[in-house]
Simulated assay, not measured.
Amino acid sequence: MLMRHIVLFRRKSDVTKDAVLEKALTERMASLGAEIPVIQGWKFAANELSRPICWDYVLETEVADAEALDQYLFHPLHQALVADLKPYFEWAAVDYTT
C-alpha cells in the first residue's frame, strides 16, 4: 500500500494573473518530485477545461506511508516552494492510503 497526497491549486481571487510567475512556480512544482528521495510517484497537470468548479492545477504524490509524507512535507525544498506558492495560489489537499 502507498499513501497518496493530492493537492489542487488555483490562483487566489485577489491576485492578478502573472503568466511569467505562474510558469516559474508550476515548473518548480512539476520538477520537485525528482528532487526528494521519499517520493515514489509524482504527477502534475494543468486543468484543461474551463468550468467554474475546476481548479487550475493538480498534484498527485505517492509515498510509502504517513512518515514518508511528513519527510516530503517538511523537506527544505518543499518548504521553500510552499513559501513561494502562498502569495499566489490557494490549495486544498487530501491524503489517503491506496
Results as ranks from 00 to 15, higher is better:
11 R>G: 07
13 S>K: 10
13 S>F: 03
13 S>C: 05
13 S>M: 05
13 S>G: 05
16 T>A: 08
17 K>M: 07
18 D>G: 12
18 D>V: 14
18 D>Q: 11
22 E>Y: 07
22 E>C: 06
22 E>G: 08
22 E>F: 12
23 K>D: 15
23 K>A: 14
23 K>V: 14
23 K>F: 05
24 A>N: 09
24 A>M: 10
25 L>A: 01
25 L>N: 02
26 T>L: 03
26 T>D: 04
26 T>Q: 09
26 T>A: 05
27 E>K: 12
28 R>P: 02
28 R>M: 10
29 M>C: 07
30 A>I: 10
30 A>H: 14
30 A>E: 15
31 S>L: 15
31 S>K: 14
32 L>S: 04
32 L>W: 04
32 L>N: 03
32 L>T: 08
32 L>A: 06
32 L>E: 06
34 A>L: 15
36 I>D: 06
36 I>C: 11
36 I>H: 03
37 P>K: 10
37 P>F: 08
37 P>E: 10
37 P>Y: 05
38 V>W: 00
38 V>K: 01
39 I>C: 01
39 I>D: 00
40 Q>I: 06
40 Q>S: 11
40 Q>Y: 04
40 Q>E: 15
41 G>Q: 12
41 G>K: 11
42 W>T: 09
44 F>V: 10
44 F>T: 02
44 F>L: 08
45 A>Y: 01
45 A>D: 06
45 A>L: 05
45 A>C: 09
46 A>C: 03
47 N>Q: 12
48 E>W: 10
48 E>T: 08
49 L>C: 13
49 L>V: 07
50 S>T: 13
51 R>A: 13
52 P>Q: 14
53 I>F: 11
53 I>R: 12
53 I>M: 07
54 C>W: 00
54 C>N: 11
54 C>S: 04
55 W>D: 00
55 W>R: 03
55 W>P: 01
56 D>K: 08
58 V>I: 08
58 V>K: 00
59 L>H: 02
59 L>S: 01
59 L>A: 09
60 E>D: 11
60 E>Y: 04
61 T>H: 03
62 E>I: 07
62 E>P: 10
62 E>M: 05
62 E>Q: 12
64 A>V: 11
64 A>H: 09
64 A>L: 13
65 D>I: 14
65 D>F: 09
66 A>G: 13
66 A>C: 04
67 E>G: 12
68 A>W: 02
68 A>Y: 01
68 A>G: 08
69 L>G: 08
69 L>H: 07
70 D>C: 05
70 D>G: 11
71 Q>H: 08
71 Q>F: 00
72 Y>Q: 01
73 L>R: 07
74 F>T: 05
74 F>Q: 04
76 P>R: 15
76 P>G: 06
76 P>N: 09
76 P>S: 11
77 L>H: 13
77 L>Y: 13
77 L>W: 00
78 H>M: 02
79 Q>Y: 05
79 Q>K: 10
79 Q>I: 06
80 A>V: 09
81 L>D: 08
81 L>Y: 06
81 L>V: 08
81 L>E: 01
82 V>G: 00
82 V>W: 03
84 D>F: 02
84 D>Y: 03
85 L>D: 06
86 K>W: 02
86 K>H: 14
86 K>A: 15
87 P>W: 06
88 Y>V: 14
88 Y>A: 10
89 F>H: 04
89 F>Q: 02
90 E>W: 00
91 W>N: 10
91 W>H: 12
91 W>P: 01
92 A>K: 14
93 A>Y: 03
94 V>H: 09
94 V>P: 02
94 V>G: 05
97 T>A: 12
97 T>W: 04
